[in-house]
Design a protein around this nucleic acid. Structure first.
Lengths: 202, 202, 202, 202
DNA sequence: TGGTAAACGAGACGGTACGTCGAGTCTTGAT
DNA sequence: ATCAAGACTCGACGTACCGTCTCGTTTACCA
């Protein structure tokens, strides 16, 4: 299947791998995604270009690895559950507002979102590693609330989670609006109205 | 502000302008945004590269002009109002599902969304010319419904419109899910629950 | 022969003509021949490009006109004739040494010599307007000396004049040696030996 | 002095070097110096432009290398010495007349002469690699003749050599006259008169 | 413990596209 | 009709990176 003999990953230099990942993150923050080059990464990392090409298919893939390296475990413990769904959602989303307003976080994440739009393969990984887990932890928290009767039994929780998250990420990605606590509060309140038991469709 | 003496737009060649815009759209459909080049556009349009650089700052700006040329009037007549908000929303969104599933439409739109993420200036134009008007016509329709008592008086209609549109465009842009009639129906139903009179927050 | 209708030279703007010629000389001194451009001349002269193209076929032709404008009459009065050929030649060549060592003179003259080498048409004009007259005044002075018996009767005076002038201009053009009074004195002395009466070939 | 880190010449591709040199000579013969372009050379040689820019500073430098590649050894054996100076000079110059009247030779040589006039750095190399050795072999032959008493003891042989060569190359370069056997014969005869023993200046 | 094969740093290579400059042509108003 | 101005098509410039390809030079396993 592979036309080139695959490299022997057991002999891979961990030192180079880390240097490349670090250089990528540093550079994307400094010059932006468009001006991020393989040559630049190699030179900053003190590494031969071939070492990058040997292990990654594109600069987007490098960046994706660099970015997801420290993020995977964030979703592990799920959302808090104090028994008050509205309060839990607001508190988590307030934290997320702060995170997405942090410039250091923006550059690589935005770059990946973008790169994914034009690279379907990359997109799959990006979605399954970063976006999908995010949606899922929200859907899971909603399910818990549903089971405790806090949420209407017939609500489509996946779509509900998207109603919560997409307006948020859309505002951020496309700069269609400010990301404020007020905004997410309004959003949560509206969604909660839709999910309230007794609001079932006729 | 301008470092170069601005060109005299009264002497601009309409013929060249159209050729460039047409070539851009054709090419982005054929080769995609990443492989779209200024040289390619110029050559296809039978135009000197300088003529492109004289009037546009980047390939993204060309594409934005090309794309918005025929779209501006789409929002002019607003959304239909048959008196049944749910039905109106579903019918419009069904049409939009079809539009966004059309490959000819996808390439340039996706490209612009992407280009905007990394170019703040371009992003503003993209949002104000394409996205903002879209949100606005939905918000307007909701307002009409609110005035007729079909929607709760205290609902934030702008955020409600985003709850309707963002999950949709997010699925499309990031490929986080299928765009189907079912999906938008579920979406509309959920949002309508949130907006139903009598659902006001306590 | 001309495919375009020739411009009507009676309506030509003398003001523009002078401005173009002046700008050419000024610019060639400032930036050198290679970086001399038609656009630069036009802009400096406050003139449309077309006005230059209308009246001259190339930048070299402009420069040739500019340069020869004030030079033609230099050759009119011929070489001095005090009766002492050797002294006359040395005194004139000393003056020429000074002239050719003047930087203001070098740039355009060198440029024309060069342009001529690759443009046969221009070359003809350059030679017939500038070089040929120079050789001729020397040959004429030699002829006078021959008639007065100061020079051998059988000497080829045209070639003798070239023996005097070519080593000089060669040194200057190709930078093969310094242009000094000593050098031209040596040159004159050697040539005079060849021309001395009684040196006729056997 | 060098602002860019110099390339590692030990890794230079001999194949590319030869292809570039060959293409340069071929093209200058076909299109002339002015229309000779780096892009043209690169494309003809099947080479990236950067490979030319990496090793040469200008098209003139490429051409100089190309031209001198096969010429250096021409001067190695010096001029013939049959004991008859006049005959030796005439026979060599006759050969040179033929060489300079050969169109294949003219284009690059003329181009270099010209390029040198406007590029002092190039000029030095051109002179020291091609012109100076030429003058020197003539001066050497004259010295041999001087030592054997065929030439006056006090004559400046360097200037004498220039008297022989400069009128020749001047005629060729500036097209001030025909290059014929007759011309060089006359030239040699005149110079020989100047050098004849007993012609010493008083 | 020394030999050898892979990965490595470095960077030259053939290419493509960049954004700029100037050439020479063409069009528009003003004189 | 010529002029100043400058937009146009075209071609080349010199630069930046691409992804591929040698080069020695580590490095780590295995004989």
């Amino acid at each position: 299947m592979a036309n080139k003999t695959a490299p022997d990953s057991s002999r891979r230099s961990e030192r180079s791998r880390r240097a490349i990942l670090d250089a990528s993150l540093a550079l994307v923050g400094e010059v932006g995604y468009d001006k991020l080059t393989i040559e630049g990464i190699a030179s900053r990392a003190g590494v031969g270009k071939q070492t990058i090409y040997r292990w990654w298919p594109s600069k987007a893939a490098v960046l994706l690895d660099a970015f997801t390296a420290g993020v995977d475990e964030d979703y592990a413990q799920g959302l808090p559950d104090t028994g008050d769904l509205t309060a839990d959602l607001k508190s988590v989303l307030h934290a997320t507002v702060d995170e997405f307003n942090d410039p250091a976080f923006q550059a690589p994440y935005r770059a990946l979102a973008v790169a994914g739009a034009n690279d379907e393969e990359l997109s799959r990984t990006f979605v399954s590693r970063l976006i999908e887990p995010g949606i899922r932890v929200y859907a899971d928290r909603l399910r818990a609330a549903q089971e405790s009767g806090e949420v209407a039994a017939d609500a489509d929780l996946r779509v509900a989670a998207e109603m919560l998250l997409s307006p948020f990420s859309q505002r951020w990605l496309m700069r269609t609006g400010e990301l404020t606590y007020d905004f997410v509060d309004t959003l949560v309140d509206l969604v909660m109205r839709a999910l309230r038991p007794g609001s079932e469709s006729v």
